[in-house]
Design a protein around this nucleic acid. Structure first.
Length: 571
DNA sequence: GCCGTTTTCGGCCCGACTGTTTTCAGTCG
């Protein structure tokens, strides 16, 4: 029974939302959410741990009660408690909470006052000006709700969440004897930050039995279509999976076709048409004769190109670059020499300086920047000036004991509303680098927000702008910023922007990264790790960097500390 | 519901901001 961490987390999140709407004890609600997050982010499969006899109460936020509930979910695929709760609280209400600005109380009010249960009903009521008449609501709140409903149109899954679904699914499919090859294509293969659905290409001579094998998968919730060469199912996670079965001699063509992007494929197809050739998912054809298609290499070779990495296939000039031999040698995870954005228990992290240093060395890094928060966002329990000074001294001491490794003294300093930094300059001067970031006032006008960051760059101690747009995938849209102006300014003053590799952020995104590359601005890739295992998020940042065409040279933390130090020196 | 205990119950990161009120509830991080 392949229950995933994501399945368990989803059930706990839903219980939390429903309990919240039901006005349950806030700490109980939080306990469910904490547990869900722990499980969702846990690097190992919790069902596997259970299988191996591990004690789940060892996990943070999981006690005896929740451990038993996890066991029930793993055994039965569902949880009785949730089903009972759904009888008492309309489950659609939980969905309303996904609209920014609507929490449990307001959802409850909307339900009681206007009998609203769905997003559609809410939209209708807001348009009819009925929402603003509820006590505590007003014109602006109503407008904000309408705006946010419009923005919540497309539902895509983060790449990270998709991976949790893909791995067990592919392992399951692979177990079938009739399957010779299997690759997940589509935007997943292109490492796009979010994935709409999964396109899986399979080589097999027996499509019918492959399809049967697919629909037999435990996590299949709905079979939309089933055929010998093509089937569509929807998994419990809500993710749609399209499976295409082809013969071995069409594998490359199918892979290319279903990897996309559409724009890239179209460009290649037009090149083929110029030569009176035809490209489809079965191959490249000269009349009735297949002249390529067994491998992607064959496909691209025919047009005098090397294989273009999937991440670049967006028709952003990659075909021209490939044909003229100017395809960049994209950065890989092995190019990284250190991480430049991490937290410890000194603010809101989970591990000590020593533990983070040990984890970084285990990854083979030469250096690790400790960037605990400044005080402004009080929830992070950030360091004030004297506490940061004390941390600097401790890092100096620790560094004496390392061989071929060093902790970098740093801080994630809040950029305040007026663009000033949340830490006095005399302390900032002592740091190796300074990661400045915005955690408040996300809604400023484009002009004000841009000037806010420009002012932060003016401070001679600033070296890196962390998570520059503040977006959280599926939760918070990016701030309105004139990114080109910010990048030009950063380039001019010798600063850098971050690719935050946290899978919920991936900020900068691929488009902005590409822009930086065009301008000649180098970037940092950093994880924002709040615990040792999160240092592994680096690969998500690397994927985005590859989508933005970055080479190792374009990323500052591919360098030795001596070389990095020179780059960080604003002179 | 978890956790850590003065081992059986009390505390649980808690302050800022927004929009609504006119002193505060709700949301966010």
């Amino acid at each position: 029974m392949p229950v995933t961490n994501a399945d368990i987390a989803r059930i706990f999140y839903e219980i939390a939302d429903l309990l919240d709407i039901k006005d349950a004890n806030q700490y109980r609600v939080r306990a469910y959410r904490n547990a869900a997050t722990t499980i969702e982010r846990h690097p190992k499969s919790v069902p596997d741990m259970l299988d191996a006899g591990d004690d789940l109460t060892e996990l943070a936020g999981i006690g005896k009660d929740l451990a038993e509930k996890i066991e029930e979910i793993v055994e039965t695929g569902s949880l009785q408690q949730l089903e009972e709760l759904k009888q008492k609280v309309s489950p659609e209400l939980a969905e309303l909470m996904s609209i920014p600005g609507l929490g449990a109380r307001r959802v409850q009010q909307l339900h009681e006052e206007l009998d609203i249960s769905t997003i559609a009903e809410l939209e209708e009521a807001a348009k009819a000006n009925r929402v603003q008449q509820i006590p505590g609501f007003g014109e602006k709140t109503q407008q904000k709700i309408l705006d946010n409903i419009r923005h919540s149109g497309e539902r895509r899954t983060s790449w990270f969440a998709a991976e949790q679904v893909v791995e067990p699914l592919v392992n399951y499919l692979r177990s079938h004897d009739a399957i010779d090859e299997i690759t997940v294509a589509g935007s997943y293969r292109r490492h796009k930050d979010t994935v709409g659905d999964l396109d899986i290409v399979i080589v097999s001579e027996d499509g019918a039995s492959v399809t049967q094998h697919l629909v037999d998968y435990d996590a299949v919730n709905e079979v939309v279509a089933r055929g010998k060469t093509r089937s569509t199912v929807i998994l419990r996670s809500g993710l749609q999976v399209d499976v295409r079965v082809v013969a071995a001699n069409s594998y490359g063509a199918a892979l290319h076709y279903f990897t996309g992007s559409k724009a890239h494929n179209l460009a290649l197809r037009n090149m083929a048409l110029d030569r009176d050739l035809k490209i489809n998912e079965y191959g490249i054809w000269d009349g009735d004769e297949q002249i390529a298609g067994q491998t992607e290499d064959e496909m691209y070779s025919l047009f005098d190109m090397p294989v273009i990495p999937p991440e670049m296939r967006e028709n952003r000039g990659e075909i021209e670059a490939a044909r003229s031999g100017k395809l960049p040698k994209l950065i890989t995870i092995d190019d990284l020499r250190g991480d430049l954005h991490t937290h410890t228990v000194d603010s809101d992290g989970a591990a000590t300086l020593e533990e983070m240093a040990e984890a970084a060395q285990a990854r083979g890094y030469d250096y690790l920047a400790i960037t605990d928060h400044s005080p402004y966002i009080s929830i992070t329990q950030g360091l004030d000036a004297s506490q940061l000074a004390a941390q600097i001294d401790r890092i100096d001491e620790l560094n004496e004991g390392f061989d071929g490794f060093r902790l970098l003294k740093s801080c994630e300093v809040d950029i305040l509303e007026d663009g000033t930094l949340d830490m006095p300059d005399d302390v900032l001067k002592r740091l190796d680098l300074c990661v400045c970031a915005i955690h408040s006032h996300f809604d400023l006008s484009r002009k004000k927000q841009t000037e806010r960051i420009l002012k932060a760059l003016d401070n001679p101690n600033t070296t890196i702008i962390g998570h520059p747009t503040g977006r959280r995938i599926g939760q918070r849209k990016p701030m309105d910023i004139d990114m080109e102006r910010v990048m030009e300014a950063a380039l001019k003053c010798g600063c850098y922007l971050e690719i935050n590799a946290d899978p919920d952020r991936l900020d900068l995104n691929d488009v902005a990264i590409h822009m930086a590359k065009d301008i000649g601005l180098k970037l940092a890739i950093a994880t924002d790790a709040h615990k040792p295992s999160a240092l592994a998020y680096m690969r998500f940042g690397v994927y985005q960097a590859r989508r933005g065409w970055l080479t190792a040279d374009d990323v500052i933390n591919t360098r030795s500390w001596d070389d990095l130090k020179d780059l960080l020196d604003r002179g």
